[in-house]
Every structure is written in C-alpha cells, then in structure tokens.
Amino acid sequence: MKTTLSINGSGHDLDLDPRVTLLDALRQHLGLTGSKKGCDHGQCGACTVLVDGRRVNACLTLAVMCEGREVTTIEGLGAPGALSSMQKAFVEHDGYQCGYCTPGQICSATAMLEEAKQGWPSYVSDDLESRPALTREEISERMSGNLCRCAAYPNIVDAIEDVAGSER
C-alpha cells in the first residue's frame, strides 16, 4: 500500500504492507533505528516518538495510519554534534546506562514538558484544576510509561528537572 510519511520534516514515499507498524517502518524501512523495540506491545515506551507533537508508542500505530501526520523521532531532536537540551541533560546526569530505552525516554520527556506547560494534570496532582508544579513526583508519574531496566530513574528525573528549570 502506497503511503507518504513525513518524518523529521521530510517526506518519504513508501509501499508498505498495512501490517507494518510505524516503529517497523522507521527501523526496517527507513533505517531510523533510534526508536527502539523493547516489547512491541506498548508496555515499555522504548519506541516513543512524537506524532503531531504528541508522544505515542510507535509500536501500536500502523504506518499507514500516520499519513498526513508529522512524525518526530529521536533523530529529529538532535544529533551527536548538535544535541537538544534534553539530550545534553541526559548525558550530564547519566540518565541512562545501556542506552536502549534512552531515545524513548528523551522523546517522552520532551513531549511531557509540553503537556505540563499546557497545564495537563496527572494522577499525582493534588488539585486537578490548578496548574501543576513539576515536582519530582510529578515528573516520575508522567515518565512512568518509559521503563528503564538499568533503573536510571533518579538520574532521568534529575535531567528533566534540569531542563524544566532552565526553561522556566
């Protein structure tokens, strides 16, 4: 099935089996292996990418469903010589160990800060109606869709706090 995907600002014309997920399209058909496959069932968050600016699990989206949407992957956030502030903060705070969940964590964290800016509450927000303060607990709850088996969680929270603080 012919599909055009817009990824990191450029268009890609693909002919895909409708069964191909966005994640497999990125990894196997476009060579964008920064998005990782940890479970393929939306249970680990390693495949997190942004679709129209929102974080989603690329493993639970069919590529053909993404036509006309803007997909941003870790490769679109920054490159080794030109890292985004979130990517730099992860290096500085050792917010990873093996690195496999890391692109998903960073995509997730980047979008999560936008959600918080829009005033979205979380399950741990005391008050649903006021603007939530991005405490460590709030960051942890909002990042709980990204498993890290190396368990760099406290360092991940440090990195995100750092970026959130400097953007404030």
């Binding site: 990894r27 964008l32 292996t33 920064g34 998005s35 990782k36 992957t73 870790i74 490769e75 956030l77 920054g78 490159a79 080794p80 010589g81 890292l83 990517q87 730099k88 992860f90 290096v91 500085e92 050792d94 990873y96 690195g99 496999y100 890391t102 692109p103 960073i106």
Partner: peptide
C-alpha cells in the same frame, strides 16, 4: 560523562538487529 553518551542519546548507537 560517558564517551558513548552522545550516540546513545541521539539514537545513533547501533544495537543488535539494527544494522
């Protein structure tokens, strides 16, 4: 900081099954 850090955070570090 880890010398492998920039590759890991940018998604350019290649794991098994990726090349």
């Amino acid at each position: 900081t880890r010398p492998d850090g920039p590759a890991k955070v940018a998604g350019t570090a290649s794991y098994a099954g990726e090349i």
